[in-house]
Simulated assay, not measured.
Amino acid sequence: MELIQIVGVIFALFALSRVLLQLKKRNISINEGLFWIFVWSLVIIFLIFPEFFGYVAEFLGVGRGVDALIYISIVILFYLIYRLYAKIDNLERQITYIVREIAIRDRHEPKKRD
């Protein structure tokens, strides 16, 4: 096993422990936790068995395993960016609603100035 594989596995195990801790504290949902457990488990498998990339590349019709990894990573990153965009958009809508409610409430109860 190469040094980069050992460092990668240690990091992935650390990240996996953080996901499990977040699940235990209920800071993330079960679905999010399962997604990240799946991702970090795949990272560990790929680091321990790098030849598996060749099978994935062959299945996807890509030349090399590293190319397959890059393509898959880009797709996953785009998906995660979309999820972040959707969450931010939802938060903006909630903030707008709250600000409007406060403005309507304060219209009837003006603040006293000193």
Rank of each mutant, 00 (worst) to 15 (best):
I74W: 08
M1A: 11
K111G: 02
L47Y: 11
K24P: 00
I74D: 02
K24E: 04
D67Y: 05
Q5N: 11
I37F: 02
K87V: 10
E2Q: 09
Y97K: 13
V9N: 09
R26V: 04
F53Q: 14
D106F: 01
P110R: 03
V99T: 07
I10E: 05
F11K: 07
N27V: 01
G54P: 04
L69D: 05
I4W: 12
V7W: 10
I102R: 05
K87E: 14
H108T: 12
I104P: 00
A15N: 12
G54M: 05
D106Q: 02
L16R: 04
M1Q: 10
I76T: 08
I28F: 03
L60D: 01
D67H: 07
E32G: 02
L3T: 12
I72P: 02
E101G: 15
Q22Y: 12
I28T: 02
L23F: 01
F59S: 02
R100W: 00
G33A: 03
E32T: 08
R83M: 06
G65W: 07
E92D: 05
G8C: 08
Y55T: 09
I4S: 11
F14A: 14
R93S: 13
N27Q: 08
V56G: 05
A68F: 07
V7R: 09
I4K: 10
D89P: 00
G61L: 08
